[in-house]
């Protein structure tokens, strides 16, 4: 019998993963809620979530159930039960974050491979952040009548979103996402699964090929959406860029603007490299598995 058979989780095992992910990320959110923030004008340095918690879950267990459980945990524990429920806004967060984590989990084939983990972590948080940028920008776009007629607002939104995207990627994505995940996953792998009564994940486990193919669509779709959104927005700026008088502000503003865009570009690049690598590394293993 092949040891690498694709493991089918029973209904109750799925429920276990779901509840575990929900509880842990719920608690994590209550903790981040009370961590201090440093606010320098529009720049806010704060830990908005402990991304490593759901990342660890999706890397170790069934990505779908862990990815669904985590944002639900946030909504239930930190918002609903603490009397701070945001209605439809929570749904946005649920979809953005859930999708990010799901994709992250599917990108990882072998939880002992640090490169895959790092890539998964960055793309996971990246997707969440990009989607939320798209939604934020979209809201302003839709909420302000004839936005292009109001000088300055579009640029302003882009700059602020760019700053927030960059700080989020740095703090939530790297400091509280990537780094702790790389430390935790190898420590838990092979240890937490027996406590819950199932076998550790192997390359064939928990990811159906259909899911993996979907990922290859989701990632470019999100990036394209993100880039398209910014490009569209930039288009409305053309007129206004010319109006800028003092040159230093001009340069300063441009730099700010490009921070967001270049961050996106970097993540995109990394993602492409990663997918290509994944594809390459997948083939030989597939062959050995076939035996």
């Amino acid at each position: 019998m092949s040891h690498l058979r694709s493991q089918q989780l029973s209904q109750s095992q799925k429920l276990m993963v779901f509840i575990l992910s929900m509880s842990l990320f719920g608690i994590a959110n209550i903790i981040t809620e009370i961590t201090p923030e440093f606010v320098l004008g529009p720049v806010e340095l704060s830990v908005s979530y402990f991304a490593f918690v759901p990342l660890t879950m999706v890397f170790l267990f069934s990505p779908l159930h862990a990815a669904l459980g985590a944002p639900l945990g946030e909504i239930i524990f930190a918002d609903l039960l603490m009397g701070d429920f945001g209605g439809l806004g929570e749904l946005e967060g649920f979809i953005e974050f859930g999708m990010g984590m799901y994709v992250a989990g599917l990108l990882v084939k072998d939880p002992t491979n640090k490169k895959q983990l790092a890539l998964g972590a960055l793309i996971g948080v990246g997707i969440d952040q990009m989607l939320s940028t798209i939604v934020d920008v979209g809201k302003v776009w839709f909420g302000i009548e004839e936005l292009e007629a109001v000088p300055g607002v579009a640029e302003s939104i882009l700059v602020l979103e760019g700053i927030s995207f960059t700080t989020e990627m740095l703090i939530s994505g790297v400091l509280f996402g990537l780094i702790p995940t790389l430390w935790l996953v190898p420590k838990l792998y092979g240890k937490i699964e027996p406590l819950m009564g199932f076998e550790p994940r192997n390359p064939a486990t928990f990811r159906s090929s259909a899911e993996v193919i979907n990922v290859k669509f989701i990632i470019p779709a999100v990036f394209l959406g993100f880039v398209a959104m910014i490009a569209e927005f930039m288009a409305t700026l053309d007129v206004n860029f010319a109006v800028w008088e003092p040159e230093f502000i001009d340069q300063f503003g441009m730099q700010f603007l490009w921070v967001g865009v270049s961050a996106a570009a970097i993540v995109l690049l990394v993602a492409i490299i990663g997918i290509v690598k994944l594809k390459n590394s997948q083939n030989p293993q597939d062959k050995s598995k076939g035996a």
């Binding site: 004008g41 529009p42 109001v150 000088p151 300055g152 640029e155 302003s156 206004n240 109006v243």
Partner: peptide
């Protein structure tokens, strides 16, 4: 903040 930044952009 948005107003502040947009004034910087000539708003």
């Amino acid at each position: 903040y948005i107003i502040f930044v947009s004034v910087m952009f000539g708003g």
